[in-house]
Amino acid sequence: MPTLDDNHTGARIKEQRKLGRLTQRQLAARLPYSYSLLNSVECGLRPATADFVAACAKALGVDVTVLTGQPYVSELQRDRLAELIRPIRESLDLYDLGPSPDITARPTDQLVATADRLCREVRATHLRSAARQLPGVIAELTHLAWSSPSTRLWRSLASTYRTAHDISVKLGYYDLSAVALDRMDWAAQRGSDPCLAAVRQYMRALVYFREGEYGIGQRLVAAGHQVVGQAGESREALAVAGQLHLGASVISARAEDQTAVDLHIGEARRIAERIGDAADVHWLSFGPANVALHRMSAAVEMHQYDEALKQARTMKLPPQLATSRRAHFLIDRARAEMETGSTDKALEHLVDARRMAPEQTRYHPGARETITGLVHLSRRTPERLNHMAAWIGL
């Protein structure tokens, strides 16, 4: 059976608490959680859920990644993913340097199609392939956008910055994701694209969702609605507005505001019924299925695990749904199964998520914490769980 060392979230919470000269009871007094839960998490007897970690980070005045330990350097190096990050970082720094005499860019049509394909690869969880190609595409698009400016090129460049953000988040490089979002705004403004600008606000809101700053996240969603309102009633604008409502639903769930959750899910459902599946719009996966998935995610965030499982068991995911969304569903369901005592089913869903999207699952904080929780709930660890624990570096 794997044993827990000091490299887990609970141990890092304990370390930061001591650095802040706080006792467990003093920290617990600052949290919307009990002393007993804090004690159990620090000892590794209970998994540190995302909302619990966000609350601790806020109370301790540290970044969430200080407590989660992201990025997972040893695993990233073993998977040869860490070496792909530096070229992405460097490509993001080219934005204001103008055209490059050293670059011979591909034709615009080919580059735009490649940028779209990279978005699609991330949705299919082919992170390594997308990360390897991305820096060159950003460099070529930056060169072309400066040498032959056009709305199409600026929008495509904004799209590649969004892909850089997505890859950075999935691998735990949140500092790099923030840079990518700034670049996305810079390019979207030059492309005069209110929909892309609103997508960027949605992604910024999710950054604050992870950090536990729900008020700021809700304000960013509202700002996104204002921006997308400039695009009129097009299908594209409606899909983006619907996705903003979905983002607001999980932020409201983390803030334990059931009324707001119901409101935003209702608005998103209304839009989805009007436009149907719109997964092609900025690769947001918006549509009836994604509304249902966010409704379940909101129940998980509000610790309504029985309700989440009730929804999960009746859910039929369409074949065209992005692999990244399918894997996220399995990870959410695994957490709900574990919290309701169905540890075998929880492990089964995590194994399925790994089979479907190995890179995404390995570096997903929720998956890692659920695996850790299963280890400590098991008197005798099944061989499959041993393999999963070793796989995430436990």
Rank of each mutant, 00 (worst) to 15 (best):
R155M: 11
D277W: 13
M356C: 06
P99V: 04
A253D: 06
S285Q: 09
R78Y: 11
A50P: 11
P288D: 00
S34R: 09
H328M: 14
R354G: 06
F52D: 04
L22P: 05
Q218G: 13
L118E: 02
L134R: 00
A346W: 07
G172W: 07
A255L: 03
Y35Q: 03
H282M: 04
D96C: 14
G242Q: 03
L27D: 02
R21H: 14
T340L: 05
S74N: 05
D262M: 13
Y202R: 01
R254V: 05
D332V: 10
A180H: 04
Q16T: 02
R200G: 08
A357S: 10
A131R: 00
R354W: 11
Q230D: 09
I85V: 15
L153V: 12
A231I: 01
R295T: 04
E267F: 12
K14L: 12
Q77S: 14
L84P: 06
H8R: 09
A55E: 07
M1S: 12
A389H: 03
E383C: 12
T323E: 02
A223M: 10
P107M: 10
G266I: 12
L153I: 08
V41H: 06
V227D: 01
V281H: 01
A268Y: 05
Q24L: 14
T9E: 02
G341D: 09
L317I: 13
G69C: 12
T160E: 05
E383G: 11
A105T: 08
I331W: 15
R25L: 07
L76Y: 07
R219Q: 14
A115E: 00
G10Y: 13
L244K: 04
T125M: 09
A268E: 05
N7F: 09
G224F: 01
M184C: 05
T259N: 06
R78T: 13
H294T: 03
I271T: 04
T372S: 15
D5G: 14
Y174H: 15
A346Q: 06
E301K: 14
Y208P: 07
R78F: 12
A237G: 01
L263P: 00
T314N: 13
L153C: 11
L19W: 00
A197P: 00
A28E: 06
H225V: 02
R46N: 10
